[in-house]
Design a protein around this nucleic acid. Structure first.
Lengths: 240, 240
DNA sequence: AGCTTTTATAGTCATCACGACTATAAAGAG
DNA sequence: CTCTTTATAGTCGTGATGACTATAAAAGCT
């Protein structure tokens, strides 16, 4: 049939952009949620999101929503990625809503607030985030899986970190998202052996906050891909 | 704002499902295209697709379109994967159309035909497929990139092959999609060392079509992931 | 028949990535 | 001034892999 607009009737759809905004706070993976103020799912938590406006792409709408919900003045540099689209006919009981889901990765921020919007946005630990409104549990699970997979073969982990970070903090990103412990010397060797993953901060800056030997500071490099990949430990008896 | 349906007006969108259907014929990567019979882009080639109906998900619509365009009676077993959603406001000059793009992988089929639909569907070599209508060039390029990447870490390549195939045919899938030559003994070793990738056809069946020593026949295994991955040769001076 | 060509399959070898360790250095806590 | 804690520097063996060489089994010649 191939897009015959005149011959085939089409029902209007509402299109929304929903966001799975993830961060790591205190070694815990957290997701930004809003509390619904009306039916359906009134009182339930949900992923932030909203309608795509007539002059917007879904990406633009997602970035606008991200700015509104986090209250950040500049979200242009944040990592925002289209996850997938959810279009089951009954996913919203009121009307036909197709949602384009996005994933955003944020470093540890001062404190979130509802922004200019009245809706309360809060960081909730990933493990205790369900059950959410609509099919948002599945969207959140898909986002988690996607991020975990992308850590393997991209330099995405630095998106969770502040501008300057230690290798220990970077390792904690992997450990928190994957839920597994990693060997510290091996992690260090792997990261430093990948050109463009991290760059040492000039001036021999070191972080000496807590106990122990102070750690060297690094900043995110220019590379985006990771070759060869940094594979997570095989959970089962998989080969190699 | 988080999905306040009553407070915020929303313009109706049309939602379509478009398909990048890929196959390998005669060692060439080909894509299924339809010729547009009306404006805009009349006479241009485009990816097959159509409107998502009120009672369908985008996945269901895509599978229905796939059956209509290919004329296949059973498309339930074919590999169909959501690629991403394209929602630029000006991507269709007539109205606001958001399309959910899918990628389908088909083995070499007898001959395609317009199916029950009047639109002519034809296999076109990937390299000579452009320029297409709307933003379909980009969708097709995204599909190619996605498939190339998934060949690395999944057993997806068998989806291009008939039920029984030789390792040479499987290797040609990789070489055609990636556009690079692979070492045959190494490819063989890698595939056979991956449990569940391919299974030998019982009865010591062998294919002795052309010249040379007849090749053993294999069928697709049950595994879906590839650990460790089968990385494509590094195009540039990347590490290892 | 014999020879060549062609493709499939078997094996070798060196390198490199990586998991599992051990060892040392530099800070704070008691 | 030692003990603990964290960062960093190595070591060692194994396995995956790229680059080869070698052999087997068919078709096509002359």
């Amino acid at each position: 049939m191939s897009m015959n607009y005149d011959k085939y009737a089409h029902e209007p759809f509402a299109v929304t952009a929903d966001l799975a905004v993830l961060t790591i706070r205190d070694g815990v993976l957290k997701v930004l949620l809003v509390e619904r103020g009306q039916e359906p799912y009134k009182g339930h938590w949900a992923l932030p999101g909203g309608f795509v406006q007539p002059d917007e792409s879904a990406e633009t709408a997602a970035r606008r929503e991200l700015a509104e919900e986090t209250g950040l003045s500049d979200v242009s540099g944040l990592h925002l990625e289209q996850l997938r689209t959810y279009s089951e006919p009954d996913r919203d009981p009121r009307m036909r809503v197709v949602t384009v889901a996005f994933t955003a990765l944020l470093p540890h921020l001062p404190e979130p607030h509802g922004g200019s919007d009245a809706a309360q946005a809060r960081w909730v630990p990933y493990d205790t985030a369900g059950p959410l409104a609509f099919d948002h549990d599945r969207i959140l699970a898909d986002a988690h899986e996607r991020v975990g997979a992308k850590l393997e073969y991209t330099c995405l982990a630095t998106a969770f970190c502040p501008p300057e970070f230690t290798l220990g903090e970077l390792q904690q990103v992997y450990e928190t998202v994957w839920g597994t412990a990693l060997d510290r010397p091996n992690f260090r060797r792997k990261v430093l052996a990948t050109p463009g993953f991290v760059e040492p901060v000039p001036g021999a800056a070191r972080l000496t906050g807590g106990r122990g030997k102070p750690a060297a500071l690094y900043s995110a490099g220019t590379a985006t891909a990771l070759h060869p990949p940094l594979l997570r430990p095989t959970p089962e008896g998989r080969p190699a």
